[in-house]
């Protein structure tokens, strides 16, 4: 009887001791958890797209809380998320500058092909074969790798070229990473005029391989009253801090590659039909 009692008391005593020690140390080593962290994580869109620069929504949340990260870095949540974060953190919401992805190529059916690509339906795979099916080394293959990478269904392939629906686009940059040709870039949502070409090839060469690419003719540079558009390396680029969306350059561009949302997106329908027909003829001639 005595043996049983010793065993029970000792083991029970040990249990009690450990229990007390754990209870005390849980108070002693308590990590002060900020309940705002949970609120922030809940307010995150949860896309874990890492466009904010942190690898995941919860890490961004803790960065806001602990490292004083800006609250307007989430392009997916946009204004509403920034406002929620601001409310949780008790600071003013500085609105994030809304950006949208821009596919800087309008080639597609208007760009000349090196060969007919019939492989895996993926731009990365296509790019591995002799630099891709296009003569232009800066062209969109239109195989939809970016569209597959987009979690918001904002990218579609129209006439063999990727087109971004800027209303659906959240600016998460996933498509930029997906594109093997570095064609996609972020551009301000408010910007109506956009240069849809990244080719730095000389005008003469470009004219032969693409119906629409920028040849660096400097027409836009001359027409711009705001010193916002400049041609460098045979390619026009817009300084959006100076651009006021007047659309003069889009109107004047002889290649119609400056898109103007107020005016129309890209070349007019009948225009493009004509050009397509031309390009078909060209190809036949070459063959």
């Amino acid at each position: 009887m005595n043996e049983i009692l010793t065993a029970v008391l000792t083991i029970g005593g040990l249990g009690l001791l450990f229990g007390v020690v754990l209870a005390v140390s849980s108070k002693l080593f308590a990590v002060v958890r900020d309940e705002r962290l949970e609120l922030l994580v809940d307010a995150m869109p949860g896309a874990n797209c890492a466009a904010c620069g942190y690898s995941g929504c919860s890490l961004y949340a803790s960065a806001i809380l602990n490292e004083g990260a800006a609250i307007n870095l989430c392009p997916v949540g946009g204004d509403s998320a920034a406002e929620t974060f601001a409310a949780i953190m008790g600071v003013d919401a500085a609105k994030p500058k809304r950006v949208t992805a821009l596919v800087r190529c309008m080639g597609g059916v208007r760009a000349k092909k090196k060969f007919v690509y019939a492989g895996i339906n993926d731009c990365v795979a296509a790019a591995r074969i002799g630099g891709g099916p296009l003569e232009c080394s800066h062209g969109c293959f239109g195989l939809g790798t970016c569209a597959a990478a987009c979690r918001f269904g904002a990218i579609s392939i129209v006439d063999e070229v990727a087109v971004v629906d800027s209303e659906k686009c959240t600016g998460c940059t996933l498509c930029i990473e997906a594109c093997p040709n570095n064609i996609i870039a972020m551009s301000p949502y408010e910007a109506d005029v956009q240069i849809c070409c990244v080719s730095t090839d000389k005008g003469g060469l470009l004219r032969k391989i693409c119906e629409i690419g920028c040849v660096g003719c400097r027409m836009c540079e001359k027409v711009c009253k705001h010193d916002a558009i400049h041609v460098e390396n045979n390619l026009a680029s817009i300084d959006y801090s100076k651009c006021n969306n007047c659309g003069d350059c889009a109107e004047k561009c002889p290649r119609k590659l400056i898109s103007d949302a107020n005016f129309d997106k890209g070349p007019k329908a009948d225009d493009s039909e004509q050009i397509t027909a031309n390009s078909d003829n060209d190809m036949d001639g070459n063959e």
Partner: peptide, 16 residues
């Protein structure tokens, strides 16, 4: 008992 308590204790300690 010892191991379970120890692991808990160590975890709390490390967390802090």
């Amino acid at each position: 008992l010892v191991i379970a308590a120890l692991v808990q204790l160590v975890e709390m300690f490390l967390k802090k």
